[in-house]
Design a protein around this nucleic acid. Structure first.
Lengths: 267, 267
DNA sequence: TACAGACGTCTTTTGTAAGAGACAAATTGT
DNA sequence: ACAATTTGTCTCTTACAAAAGACGTCTGTA
């Protein structure tokens, strides 16, 4: 297994808070790291590798995994010595959906919009300082552009990111966006001031369109979903080919904004 | 603990007081209890009440909740001092679905079957010794009979329960079914031997129909989904009015068994 | 105005869980 | 065939998290 150059970048929420070497770690925190690790690897993994992956002692990992498996939060995968998320997490997740009007209705709107337009559509939210695809519906194009649910991406890379930060103070934005986040996948570097200007623009126009940011072939249209006046709780967005005509884009934008507005009303 | 016998002896879910003789509890276990509690209450709850609910010290509960909220597994509900499941759990749940062919395809089949027949349809699995509704689709009847996703019910109350236990030894079945489980909601008491006989029958016929078990108005048709020859991994079932005609029932049974079989193939 | 109760934050104590390490058994590779 | 790993379980120690409880703040209500 090539565990080379930071294949898994630390789930380190606070920057460079790596603890004193050889110190003990709270069990719960280990568990949280295990979850994050499984979430990024997206596949079942052996317990030994898991211990390495989260940088925890083997014995500790075995104990924790046993607890979690007994509780149903993790499950042993078919072949017998790998673990992955369990049914319980799915059930809790469904509880979350049930208790969350916005998400429930948002998923519906996204699915509908995707069917209506044939384009990939997504519902996005802010999650621990990053842009997160909470639900996505593929669209009907031969090439599927879409990314997976749960994927987390730096805010400056996306149109939605600009809307999600609308209404925040400059200081808050600076806190939330790291230097690395400003470097696009192709190596180009955004200027923080430009990004903040984009946010202001997005805020006043009520939508945002970006071209060729995450990759060179797509354009991203996003519209805000408000939970209260001025408070952007989520965004809906459409991912389309970068050469989509101006007219077509405008047309899609209307549909998108309609649905996003509908989501805002009762929330 | 090498005694394999009491593996599933959860310390009594009933409020009949866990009389822990003034000892400390592991943080992770507290968290697991918090999750179970939220899952059964199905709503946001104040932290103080939560502490009472899981019978944990207030100070401990505050600390744990803070950790979990920071991690995104829980969220503070709108009004500000209640907690419920968080987005992260939803994302992990979606990861589970993605990694689990059976569940992903099962949900689809259930939705389709429900649309096709107009009846309430469910996908069920064994979860820590109980029958669990993993996904359900309402149907189009004026009265909706359905129960919620994630609901857990004693095995003997259901048709699916009889199929899920097919292939197990008598001893295993006895371990899994408590005395209480044999008492139906209306007070009637099943004989364990009858239940075991039902299981054998269900196994050989390849389906199971029960009438008026959970309530007096519904009939439940269930068919097994195999993950390997002889191993029942899940069931699909239909919940219909108890006075559904013999012919109609048979017709539904055919559709149900078709879809359940289709689910079995590739799994 | 005083009271009773819930809320959220701290500080202190001590019971115990996290971790180190040793082990046999199972799985590799040569 | 024989090392070289990896796996899962077990024991023992001590660093530290869970719990108790005190505190100040808000309610509501008597």
């Amino acid at each position: 297994m090539q565990d080379g150059i930071g294949v898994t970048d630390r789930p380190d929420i606070s920057p460079t808070e790596d603890k004193t070497p050889g110190s003990r770690e709270k069990g719960l925190n280990r568990v949280l790291e295990i979850f994050e690790f499984l979430h990024t690897t997206q596949r079942a993994i052996g317990i030994g590798d898991l211990a390495k992956g989260v940088n925890a002692p083997r014995s500790t990992t075995y104990t924790l995994v046993r607890s979690l498996v007994d509780a149903g939060l993790l499950e042993m995968a078919g072949d017998g010595n790998r673990v992955y998320f369990g049914k319980k997490l799915y059930l809790y997740g469904m509880d979350y959906v049930r208790g969350n009007d916005l998400l429930r209705r948002g998923r519906q709107e996204v699915d509908d919009l995707s069917r209506q337009t044939g384009e990939t559509s997504e519902l996005c939210m802010l999650q621990s300082g990053r842009y997160t695809i909470v639900h996505s519906s593929p669209g009907t194009r031969p090439f599927r552009i879409s990314s997976a649910t749960g994927l987390q991406i730096p805010l400056p890379w996306t149109a939605s990111g600009r809307l999600l930060l609308a209404g925040l103070e400059r200081a808050d934005i600076e806190d939330m966006v790291s230097e690395d986040d400003l470097v696009l996948p192709d190596g180009r570097r955004l200027k923080l001031d430009d990004f903040i200007a984009d946010i202001a623009t997005a805020r006043s126009t009520g939508y945002c369109v970006t071209s060729g940011l995450v990759d060179a072939y797509t354009k991203c249209l996003a519209a805000p979903v408000f939970s209260a006046p001025g408070k952007v709780e989520a965004t809906m967005c459409l991912v389309v080919p970068i050469d989509t005509s101006r007219e077509k884009t405008d047309e899609l934008l209307v549909l998108l904004r309609q649905r996003a507005a509908r989501l805002s009303i009762a929330a």
